[in-house]
Each structure stands twice: as structure tokens, then as C-alpha cells.
Simulated assay, not measured.
Amino acid sequence: MIAFKHVSKIYPNGIHGLHNINLHIGEGEFVVIVGLSGAGKSTFLQSINRLHEISEGEIFINNKSITKAKGNELYRIRRDIGMIFQNFNLVHRSTVMRNVLSGRVGYHSTLRMILGLFPKKDKQLAMEALRRVNIPEKASMRADQLSGGQQQRVSIARALAQEPKLILADEPVASLDPMMTGQVMDDLLRINQELNMTMVVNLHDIEIARKYANRIIGLKAGKVVFDGKADEATDEAFAEIYGKTDKTSERMGMEQYERIENTANG
């Protein structure tokens, strides 16, 4: 599904955002990328769909090089990649349905989209996407009338309406309270399992990563320092990712995880 081959990203100031990354992410995996701020998580994620241009190496999506792709080929590859952002990236004054339908822009002409001429099939896809995240009743509401968690669910539905082959989520729960964090992560996991949809998710919280991922990749200073199954992500492994003296992040992660569990259990 995704292959990194000797991928590096070097910023103009000489700092390595990514350093010689070599790995493969298979179809249907739920992969969580963890690491401290500045470890390279967002650079890693956004290089997959070329929101970040890499400096060296090559990235393949379904055996096609997105690194070398241009024009219509790049457009078609990107159409298969759904993206979910921390800040939702919704048009707040538009309806939920219109925001979800924006996931269909890659399939129609610019003029058709400006005029809002979405075919019936697109509207059915959008409504089904809203059902998958449990908010079909919000379709006619304005996006800015929703809570943060509901807005993130709209952004997930928008990605689904795109009919992607994989979804990238960059800190999708960082701005949400514990209850909504659990609900949004449950949505992503259910989509992964029911649709066999490949998920690559950036998270700060190590306990949430352990709960939801089937594979965890740890980055430190742009390098992969851990790559294994969630049950292999021991405290020692996380000490390597976060630093042996950094216990605050681990404790805060455990506290947030316990709040989510307590809320879910009533």
C-alpha cells in the first residue's frame, strides 16, 4: 500500500525532518505514528500525499511513485488518499452535507462544483459517510453549529465520501475532550475494520496508540526508533521514543486514557 524507500527530508536550515526512512505499510493496517513534537510525525504523514516534498528517496502508493508523479497522474494518486486534520478544515458557514460533498471534488469539473451540481450518487455517498460516523441527522446543519467532536466526524465523513484507498489523520483528537477522543478514535477503528481501510494516524498519547493501533511506529529526530505491534510497545520502547527522563508525557497519556475508559464505562 505505502512504501518509503530511503526517504529523507532536509529543511533549508539543515535540520533533518526525516532521515533515511525505509518501511512498508500494508493494506488494512491501522498504524499510529508517535513521538515528541518535532520528531517528524507530521512531515512523515504529509509526505505520503506530497503536502511535504521530500529531499531524497521515493514514496510509492500502490506501487506508483507519488514522488515522481506529475499532472493528472499525481491528481489521481492523491484522489485515493483521504486526509483528516487536527483543525477539521471545514467551511463553517456551509452545511454539513455540503462539507462532506466537497470530498467529491476530485471526480467532477471545477464549474460543476462551483455551481453545486452534485449528482444523486454523490449525495447518497455523503449520507452513507455521515451514517458511518453516526451523525446523519446533522446533514442540514451549518458546520459551525456543531461541537468540536462532531466537526471532526464531519471531516472523517468528507474523507470517506472521497472513496479513498487509505486515510491519513494528523493529530485528529488533539483538540478534543476525552469523551469525544474515544468516540472519534472508535469511528476510525470501525472504518478500518469494516472497510479494510488503511489508516495512518499521528498521535501524541501513547496509551491511545496502544489501545487502537495494530502497529506503532516511533519517530525521534526524524528517525524510526520503533516499529512493531502494539503489544510490543513496552514502556522501555516508549522510553527510547520519548527519552528516558521524560515521564511526564507518559503519565499524562495514562491519565487521559483512564478518563476515556471511565467515561465509556459510565
Rank of each mutant, 00 (worst) to 15 (best):
227 D>N: 15
223 K>W: 06
227 D>Q: 03
227 D>V: 09
240 E>H: 06
219 L>C: 11
239 A>T: 06
233 A>I: 04
226 F>C: 10
225 V>S: 12
227 D>S: 15
235 D>V: 12
237 A>R: 09
240 E>K: 14
225 V>G: 11
232 E>L: 08
224 V>Y: 02
238 F>S: 00
236 E>S: 12
243 G>E: 10
239 A>Q: 06
226 F>A: 08
222 G>W: 09
243 G>P: 04
243 G>M: 05
229 K>S: 10
235 D>E: 13
238 F>W: 00
227 D>H: 04
213 A>C: 03
209 A>F: 01
239 A>D: 09
236 E>W: 03
243 G>K: 05
239 A>L: 06
242 Y>C: 00
216 I>R: 06
224 V>W: 05
218 G>Q: 07
231 D>K: 10
236 E>Y: 10
218 G>A: 10
225 V>I: 15
227 D>P: 04
233 A>W: 02
243 G>A: 08
222 G>E: 06
209 A>H: 01
221 A>T: 07
239 A>M: 10
229 K>H: 08
237 A>Y: 03
217 I>G: 04
239 A>V: 01
228 G>Q: 12
233 A>P: 01
228 G>R: 11
244 K>P: 02
240 E>F: 05
213 A>R: 01
224 V>S: 01
209 A>W: 00
241 I>F: 07
225 V>F: 15
212 Y>C: 13
216 I>T: 03
226 F>E: 07
227 D>E: 14
243 G>Y: 04
228 G>H: 10
223 K>T: 14
240 E>N: 09
227 D>A: 09
240 E>P: 01
238 F>E: 01
242 Y>S: 00
217 I>L: 10
227 D>L: 08
241 I>S: 03
229 K>Y: 09
220 K>L: 05
208 I>S: 03
209 A>E: 02
226 F>V: 05
217 I>N: 02
228 G>N: 12
231 D>R: 08
227 D>T: 05
232 E>M: 13
238 F>H: 01
230 A>G: 07
224 V>I: 15
237 A>T: 08
220 K>T: 01
215 R>A: 11
233 A>F: 13
239 A>W: 01
223 K>G: 09
238 F>V: 08
214 N>G: 00
215 R>M: 08
208 I>C: 09
235 D>K: 13
222 G>V: 10
221 A>M: 13
219 L>T: 04
226 F>G: 07
241 I>E: 02
244 K>R: 13
236 E>P: 02
226 F>S: 06
244 K>V: 12
211 K>E: 15
239 A>K: 10
214 N>Y: 00
